[in-house]
Nucleic acid binder design. Structure first.
Lengths: 191, 191
DNA sequence: TTCATTGTTGACCGTTCGGTCCAGAATTGC
DNA sequence: GCAATTCTGGACCGAACGGTCAACAATGAA
């Protein structure tokens, strides 16, 4: 019994996510966001609350997307192959994609140290990711793909940390072919 | 034949570095900086140029300090011991120190993607760090501490990337004791 | 002592910030 | 049709932003 919205919430949120991802929270102005989202100022405040609330929705959307990606990959028959695939996918990104960095890591460093709410959010999401990978490695042990003397939880922590490090390295120097060394040495931990 | 400065440039720069480190570039205002540095507005513009120039000096100071730290450590007789020491030092930081994160990684993600000058700076510094570590590992090979079948350059890349990843993990979750797993698995690459 | 030079101080600049207000347009139930 | 409700667009808000300017204080060579 009232007027309908002229824009799609999900589309606008996707655009906002990309802007925040590219520039970080502080460097992104409301004007930037509104232009990218293609909506008016008031529509934004009515629909999402304020800048911080919009940011958190965008961040959660980003993490959901990444989590879906990785969960999907790791559910493949060969867990080792899937993990290699994750790393290879990063290596084969274009320099532009590498330059872009990781929205999650950026947020952890830019906001989490001063924003307990965001810190909790990132912690919780990190734990979920670790669980998914640890479970996959446990599965790999059952199929004898991974030696039973390995500690799946420790391996999951190690691989995810190295993955983060590789992300940072790729952002610093997107054209450096030496990053393959990082992947090969990281994957040796599975032998 | 003119008035002398009432403040010490190095002291003021150190303070500015800490503020930028804690908050990042965008979230730090000139007012924040001037208060922390304890100097007047005009003194700052006369001495350092503008906000960006001050930031770059602060960033270089930070990287110099870290580079001196690591260079000093890896020059110890046992290279393996020194590398373990680097990781252990991070693990034994207080939660507050861990939360603080790494100024270099923050800058790489916040500014480097849009600021070619800063990107070049970070790339060059990363390469120097890699060289220092690769040379130390080569030295370790000569003293038979490290097997001669290893690739020092690849190992240096891998260890530095994992170190970055550990830094990010420590920032995300400063109280997590599981980060030791990352260190132990990373150091296995030296066996 | 004089005077050119440099450092300090605080007022001031235009711009941009995130956020609010309100008038009017569009939609739906009656 | 009407009335109730919601959405939209633009004017507007005070505050904070990075940066400049000009008056004044300190210094040292002549």
């Amino acid at each position: 019994m009232a007027r309908t919205k002229e824009f799609e919430r999900e589309y606008a949120l996707e655009r906002a996510m990309n802007i925040f991802w590219e520039r970080g929270y502080e460097a992104t102005s409301m004007a930037d966001l509104l232009e990218a989202m293609g909506i008016g100022r008031q529509s934004m405040y009515d629909t999402f609350g304020d800048k911080r609330a919009l940011f958190i929705e965008a961040l959660e959307r980003y993490i959901d997307q990444r989590q879906d990606e990785y969960s999907c990959m790791v559910s493949a028959p060969s867990v080792k192959g899937a993990i290699r695939g994750m790393f290879e996918a990063l290596l084969s990104e274009s320099p532009k994609e590498k330059r872009r960095g990781c929205f999650g890591i950026l947020t952890t460093l830019e906001l989490a140290p001063h924003d307990p709410g965001i810190a909790k959010l990132m912690q919780a999401r990190q734990r979920i990711l670790e669980d998914v990978m640890a479970e996959a490695l446990t599965r790999a042990q059952k199929t004898k793909e991974l030696g039973k003397e390995k500690d799946p939880r420790a391996l999951a922590r190690f691989l995810l940390a190295t993955f983060s490090g590789l992300r940072v390295a790729a952002t610093t120097d997107p054209h450096n072919p030496g990053h393959r060394d990082i992947v090969e040495l990281a994957l040796k931990s599975l032998d």
